[in-house]
């Protein structure tokens, strides 16, 4: 592994800036059969809740131009099952273990952090999901209110020393105020962005394609929105940013880092080309060598036009 690629997200050391985004890598088992995940900086688990969730019924995916809508609805085996059957497996992958924590209420998030904190030696960071658009309560509805963000992050901060990465939703008017609220609450980093709320219509039936009616839009189409939000937040935050949204090639990673990200997450691209994070890693190594640059020095080097 090239020394060129390691990054620090606050106090969290990652051997590469590339993390697999929650919900696009399950718990790592399937992709570990395809390529060696130890080349990655980390892997973020499927979004977990206190109790198992079956997720939404009916059609959960709609293909769009340069991306897709999903309405999986946080299908997951529950935190207890995760601790028993998945956490140790994730620790065998020799990469950063990020656990994505979701909930319907403040109490749910508190219970989740309490359940996970005793296993802190097996976890590199908790990614607090305040941004899933596919559940009726919690997640995005908390993550679009800055007072609630600050309050919930503050409460979780008291419960654990584990790094708290707050994954925010782009479905807000002013992203930097949401990121600042997370910082004020005591977050170690923010993850920008989760999916954009969208809808697709079947013109034959005149009904939404997704049986949840709406879903989260992801893929290359949302990258410019994510880059803008990373840049905007970088200028006001003191804590690091993990960029996410539409990354499918090495130059996308460089763009995010120049705009202000300390690390990035690759999501939907893995659904199309499962081993693309491997190619991207190789290309980033080559780019760093060619430019005689360590990748961590790129963060926030964007010079805006006056």
């Amino acid at each position: 592994m090239s020394e060129r690629l390691f990054v620090n997200v606050g106090d969290t050391f990652l051997k590469s800036p590339i993390i697999l985004a929650s919900g696009t890598c399950n718990m790592g088992r399937e992709l570990s059969e395809i390529y060696d995940l130890s080349i990655l900086g980390g892997l973020s688990s499927k979004g977990l809740t206190i109790k198992p969730r079956a997720g939404n019924e009916g059609v959960r995916v709609a293909e769009c131009k340069a991306g897709m809508l999903n309405s999986v609805g946080l299908q997951n085996p529950g935190v207890e099952h995760f601790i028993k059957y998945d956490l140790d497996f994730m620790n065998t992958l020799d990469t950063g273990v990020i656990v994505n924590v979701a909930g319907h209420s403040t109490e749910d998030y508190i219970d989740m952090v309490k359940a996970l904190d005793p296993h802190k030696d097996k976890i590199d960071a908790l990614e607090i999901n305040l941004s899933c658009p596919n559940v009726k309560e919690g997640c995005m509805s908390i993550g679009s209110d800055k007072e609630q963000i600050k309050k919930i992050v503050g409460q979780l901060r008291k419960l654990t020393d584990l790094p708290l990465w707050i994954k925010l939703t782009p479905n807000v008017t002013d992203i930097s105020s949401m990121a600042l609220a997370a910082q004020d609450g005591g977050a170690d980093a923010v993850v920008l962005i989760n999916t954009m709320l969208g809808m697709a219509v079947d013109i034959k039936t005149r009904r939404p394609v997704l049986h949840n009616n709406t879903g989260g839009y992801s893929g290359p189409a949302i990258k410019p929105v994510a880059i803008r939000m990373v840049s905007e937040c970088y200028r006001v935050l003191d804590i690091p940013i993990i960029g996410c949204g539409g990354i499918s090639e090495a130059s996308d990673v460089l763009e995010f880092m120049i705009a202000g990200a300390s690390a990035v997450e690759i999501g939907t691209a893995s659904l199309v080309v499962p081993d693309c994070p491997q190619f991207i890693t190789e290309e980033l190594e080559a780019w760093c060598e060619e430019n005689d640059t360590d990748i961590r020095t790129l963060t926030g080097t964007l010079q805006l036009w006056q």
Partner: peptide, 28 residues
């Protein structure tokens, strides 16, 4: 079912299968 990844990582192509565990109606 409408599918995306084809390898089991995105959970969009689920179908309802009778649950093994008692007290649960079905597994996706």
């Amino acid at each position: 079912q409408r599918m995306a990844c084809g390898i089991g990582i995105c959970l969009v192509c689920v179908c309802k299968i009778k649950a093994q565990e008692q007290g649960i109606e079905f597994d996706h």
